[in-house]
Design a protein around this nucleic acid. Structure first.
Lengths: 143, 143
DNA sequence: TTGTAAATATGTAATGATTACAAAATTAAA
DNA sequence: TTTAATTTTGTAATCATTACATATTTACAA
């Protein structure tokens, strides 16, 4: 359970002015680590903050993402998903129910530095996605 | 340079009827390993096959992707990109110019089997995405 | 405290990738 | 051939996201 104070501090650390809406969105991501979409976040929060606009949700997610406070997941073909936990980890997406779960990944295996040298590039973000069928859906697909 | 015959055989191996349009699209992906979007493929091919519809491109890419003949890349926030080379490798996307390049990845590091056991899931696809700045763009961003 | 500029939030309208769908064209099979 | 099945096409939707203009809130100087 992330307190409002902790959330406020977190935003401030990323040099983001902690407005009422920004705190609410960031706090929602901390408390709901299910990698929601912008629409899901809006639907959940508008029940509590009736005036919250969808544009604000999009703007805020974009701002948080650019500041590095959250991660934007391109794991889904249709919509972006958001993750409030930015520590290094990978994701698994069930192709049937769409659920996204965290899985552990060893950062070292990604060999970022050697790839940067080899291709003369700068790597600022890495995403590892696994797709398949979750424990609840796998039976439906002959696995 | 992939011949029409080789491409035809490739599609047949994946149990896909090798129609004129499907061969053209698959061959285009083989010969242009730059991970194009559906729209880019259509624009390039419609110059040669003026009657080719965008719907056919989308349908075909979806068919090829589901059959496992090509890979659908969700590396981009806006559009899907397609890759005709399905052997295991990772991708780097430049955040400035959008270019996507192949980078090597050691399949073993992904620990697919141990993750399947740990989470009781089936993994059918893995994608590793690196994002940052390419050798041409990095100078523009103080790197 | 009051006034004002800057920052933030809102609502509506556009954008654009992708899909749905029905009709047309092509291919296969009898 | 004749007919059925498959494939392609064009147009019209869908829907996530963004643009943009306006309204509201906040910060800060007087």
């Amino acid at each position: 359970m992330a307190s409002i104070e902790k959330t406020k501090q977190y935003l401030t650390d990323f040099k983001i002015h902690p407005s009422f809406q920004r705190i609410a969105i960031m706090k929602y991501l901390f408390e709901n680590p299910v990698h929601p979409t912008a629409d899901e976040i809006h639907t959940a929060l508008v029940a509590v903050i009736p005036t919250l606009s969808k544009t604000t949700v999009y703007n805020t997610l974009s701002l948080l993402s650019q500041a590095g406070a959250i991660k934007e997941l391109t794991i889904d073909e249709k919509q972006l998903h958001y993750d409030g936990y930015i520590r290094e980890h990978a994701h698994f997406r069930c192709n049937n129910c769409g659920k996204i779960i965290d899985v552990a990944i060893d950062n070292d295996t990604l060999k970022i530095e050697s790839l940067e040298k080899e291709h003369n590039i700068i790597i600022t973000d890495t995403q590892v996605f696994y797709k398949g069928y979750c424990n609840e859906c796998k039976n439906k697909f002959n696995y």
